[in-house]
Amino acid sequence: MTDLSTLRFFRTPAHACSYLEDRQASTLFVDPQATLSPALYSELSLLGFRRSGDYLYRPHCEECSACIPARVRVADFRPRRRHRRIRKLNKDLVVNREPARFTRELYSLYADYINQRHGDGDMYPPSEEQFTNFLTCEWADTHFYCFRENGKLRAVAVTDQLEDGLSAVYTFFDPRQHDRSLGVLALLWQIEQCQRLSLPYLYLGYWINQCQKMSYKNQYQPLEILRSGAWKDLPDQGE
């Protein structure tokens, strides 16, 4: 157990929020000079921290608490009818665990995804440097779970292993395969991977009720959220 009181943290200046209009956001980072490890990462995940590249962070906004850490309690997860349909639709895909590193094949899919799905976002335009700095890490236990159809790469789930679960860092996929719902498939597969590894939680990042592209996480029940220092069940809001 790390003495977290010895860690230093740095807060960014206020900037425009990426999720809610007319809001200012600020982020708390663990000192980049600190010695980071999967064990420390696991401890900080319990406090709502996430990984981006080699950095650990969490939202730290003065006048807003909309970004709420969320995780799926996988032992009690029951797929919904839509989830079962998506799993059946994608039964032809083969999933392999691969090293978290840059390759031309991976970057090509990543760049296509960013260009097609996030052309108006902070990650546009994509670059090789961005791919490496955002998705890979020197100290974390990170893997790329690659979904392929007859050898053709269709989706990648970037996943960190923690002591009490997996952390779904990011997913990118073939933006032209609309009918497959590959983003949903990747989350379902990571939940199943937690079950296979006997890990109790899949960490999903931040649930933001007011933001449609982040509120979807309540479809994966039971979902626990971190409020007032404790993990509590989020009531099921239905399909």
Results as ranks from 00 to 15, higher is better:
M1T: 13
T2Y: 12
D3Y: 13
L4Y: 15
F9R: 15
F10P: 04
P13V: 09
C17R: 15
S18F: 08
Y19D: 06
E21G: 12
Q24F: 06
Q24D: 14
A25Q: 13
F29D: 07
F29P: 08
D31A: 06
P32R: 02
A34P: 10
A34L: 07
Y41W: 14
G48M: 14
F49R: 07
R50F: 08
R50A: 10
S52L: 05
S52A: 10
R58P: 11
H60D: 15
E63M: 02
S65N: 14
C67T: 08
P69C: 09
P69L: 07
V74K: 05
F77A: 01
F77G: 02
R78V: 06
R81G: 00
R82S: 10
R82K: 09
R85Q: 10
R85N: 04
L89T: 09
V94E: 03
V95Q: 08
N96G: 01
R97L: 03
E98I: 02
F102W: 14
R104L: 05
Y107W: 05
Y107E: 00
S108W: 00
A111K: 04
D112F: 00
D120W: 09
Y124L: 11
S127D: 12
E128N: 09
E128V: 12
E128W: 06
Q130I: 11
F131C: 10
L135W: 04
C137K: 01
E138H: 10
W139G: 03
A140Q: 07
F144S: 03
F144T: 04
C146G: 01
R148I: 02
G151E: 02
R154M: 11
A155W: 01
A157Q: 10
L162S: 06
D164P: 12
S167Q: 09
F172E: 04
R176Y: 11
R176C: 04
D179N: 13
R180M: 05
R180A: 06
L185R: 04
A186F: 02
L187D: 01
L188K: 02
I191E: 02
S198M: 04
P200F: 01
P200R: 08
P200G: 07
Y201A: 01
Y201L: 01
L202V: 03
I208D: 05
N209G: 12
Q210G: 11
K213Q: 14
M214F: 06
Y216N: 11
Y220C: 03
L226K: 07
S228T: 13
G229D: 11
A230P: 00
K232S: 03
D233P: 13
L234S: 09
P235F: 11
D236F: 13
E239K: 14
